[in-house]
């Protein structure tokens, strides 16, 4: 097969691979509680290795390199969001759940609403000063 044909197939493969970073970038808006840390870290390691793989082969597949670079950034930001939520957001969420939970039947929604309500408060206080 000609090198040109190999490059075309490589481009199609990279384009098909773009579904992974796009899905995780769309998940960036979701609640960090829903991030699966095992799957996300697996995808981050997979992306790191395929970044090397895409230019180690001949002909080098730069489309795939770009795709996996974006995927690496997306997965690491998802992972850091999850870690941030566990380290800091989780504690404040647990503190705000206690007054919120008796009124609302669902605990997670109450925690999210309480966190959203609690977040602007310090800013307004600073503004009042």
């Amino acid at each position: 097969m000609s090198e040109r044909w190999t490059k075309i197939v490589g481009f199609v493969g990279a384009a098909a691979n773009w579904s992974i970073p796009i899905a995780s970038l769309m998940n960036l808006r979701n609640d960090p509680d829903k991030v699966d840390p095992i799957m996300t870290s697996t995808l981050a390691a997979y992306s790191l290795i395929f970044m090397r793989w895409s230019i180690a082969i001949y002909p080098p597949n730069y489309w795939l390199l770009g795709c996996h670079t974006v995927n690496e950034i997306a997965q690491l930001s998802q992972l850091s969001r999850w870690g941030w939520h566990k380290a800091i957001g989780g504690n404040s969420g647990a503190a705000t759940t206690a007054p919120g939970s008796p009124s609302s039947p669902s605990g997670t929604d109450a925690a999210a609403a309480a966190a959203a309500a609690a977040a602007p408060e310090p800013i307004s206080e600073v503004e009042n000063y």
Partner: peptide
Amino acid sequence: SSLCATGTVWTYYATLIQP
């Protein structure tokens, strides 16, 4: 269906690349 298509393309691509 997207994963099935990816798998099909990559199966072919793996037989084309050089090493």
